[in-house]
Structures are given as C-alpha cells and as structure tokens.
Simulated assay, not measured.
Amino acid sequence: MLIFNPKGRSDPGRLARQLSQDLRARLPAIPVSLEPTGFAGHARALAREMASTGRPLIVSISGDGGYNEVINGVMDAGGNAVCAVMAGGNANDHRRSTSTMTLIEAIIGAEVRRLDLLELQIGEGPGAWSRYAHSYIGFGLTPAMATGIEEGTKGRLSELISVTRTVSRLRPIEIARTDGARATFDSLVLANIAHMAKYGRISEAGEPNDGMFEVIMLPHASKWRIALMTLRAVTIGLGPQQSVSRYEFLTLDPIPLQIDGEIMQINAHTSVLVEARQQALATLG
C-alpha cells in the first residue's frame, strides 16, 4: 500500500504513481495499491486497516508527519506490518537519518530491519493518551521553530531567518522532574535520529535501534545563546549527547510539543513519559 497526501507540496501523488509503476514492472506478481488521504488522521486509519490484514508493506510518500501517522496506525494494529517512507514532504528527517539504500532496491531485496520507536505517554487516568514517534519529540524551541518555518517562505536561507525571528519570541518552559527538582529550558529534545529540522545535526552518538534515545537540552539562557546553539546545530553539529531509555517529568504550564513534525499542546500539571521501544518498527530502506 502506497499512502500519500494528494495536496502535498512536493507532489507526492506523482512520486507514488512512479513508485507504483516501478514496482509493477519489477514485481509484477505483487499487488500494489495507491491510497490518497483526505483528512488529518486518514493515513493512520488506512495503515491500521491494512496492517490488520496480515503483514503487508505500507509505504508513506510524505514528510515526517505523514509517516508518523502510518507508524501509529501500524502500532494500533499490533505492529506486524512493515513500514517504509519515501521522502515526499517539507521535512524528511527520518529518511535522511536512517536510509541505507534506495527504497525500490530495498523492496526488491526484501531487506527488513528493525528500528526503535519512542512512546510518548501523556497524563494518567481516563484522560491519558499516547503516541509513537519514529524520530523525535521536542518541547520549547522545536515546535516554535517548526511554526516559524511553516509561516515563512521556503528555502534554506529564508527558513534560517524564520528560525532567528522565532528565537526572539521564544518563551521558556518549566518542568518538574520525578525527584521534585524544577528545571527551566529553552529547548528540550528527545531524539532517536541524528538530524532534525532539515539542516541540524543534533547528535554524534546513538543508534536508532539500540533501545536508547538522546536528550538534547538547553537550559534557559539569553537569546544569543539560543541563536548560538541553533547556528552550531546547522553547521558543525551539537556533538555527543546523553543517552537514556526513559525520560519523565511534570509540566508546570501549558507547553507545545512537536512529535515527528506534528505540533500538539500539553496542559499544565500533566505527567509526560517517553520510553524507548527497542526495535518495535519493521522497516525497509
């Protein structure tokens, strides 16, 4: 199944049709279906339905957000399907960070491998909810940067200018750790990949299948320090970061979060738990 958003900016419909033609030419005995999405959450529903039928290959022709819907749909159905992503969106951090070969060759060779997922659990009791991330979960600067880039014009220079403007308006986030200590951050990112926000290299350590993820934090500081960190991320990288398998805290104010490109909101006084699910995702490419 090839899932794509027909209204995507990078013409994922054209990419999906081309991939379909290539697959039918090289694997004529294998059925291929094209499934355009019609609304937010549709990719998740399509993937869940398809994954419930056995062990299909589900390819998302999208950016990180579209692929997030697909992997969550597959996990809804028990995680038995094989997932893959073809870069077809505004941000393709996961594909850039984890690809080892062209997708078509990986499909022909049926070289399935397994990667970790991050499970985000928000709240407790009846109102609790959870979601999986294939790449990263960010608080503070990360969702603010994504909003600034989305509102600005496209292109590397224009987007970096948008990020700079975003930094000037940034509000810090305050959290309480499980030991009762409080901390104030300008940025907190929990990442399973080395690259994010298109141009940034956030980690030199860690593998996407080792049961660990990296914690990249910037304590609240002056705006020039935030700008310096951003500049370092898009040039030489941020270097080695702390690796953990679990990170937990309590929000003290409402805070935005970004999960694989999708922006959400968390209420104040809400528990947040992120855990690595080692090699939970079967993938190709």
Rank of each mutant, 00 (worst) to 15 (best):
A205W: 06
A144R: 10
M86Y: 04
D116R: 05
V70M: 05
A276C: 15
A197F: 03
A268H: 11
P143R: 05
L27V: 08
I259W: 01
P143I: 03
E69A: 04
P256T: 12
L284A: 13
A40M: 12
E275W: 00
E124N: 15
Q265P: 00
I193F: 14
V274G: 04
M145A: 15
G89N: 04
T147G: 14
Y132I: 00
R55I: 06
R171L: 08
L117I: 03
S97Q: 03
T230I: 12
G155K: 10
A268L: 13
V32G: 09
R201Q: 07
L34T: 04
P143L: 08
N92R: 05
R277H: 11
N5L: 09
G155T: 06
P219T: 01
E275Y: 05
W224T: 06
L188W: 05
A144C: 08
T235M: 08
R44I: 02
D76P: 12
Y199T: 05
A84Y: 02
V244E: 06
S52N: 05
S187Q: 11
V74M: 13
L188A: 06
N80R: 15
A176Y: 02
T153P: 06
L188V: 03
S52E: 07
G109Q: 13
L27Q: 14
P143N: 09
V234R: 00
A183G: 08
R156S: 12
T147H: 14
R96N: 13
L115D: 12
Y136M: 10
L257A: 01
F4M: 02
R24C: 10
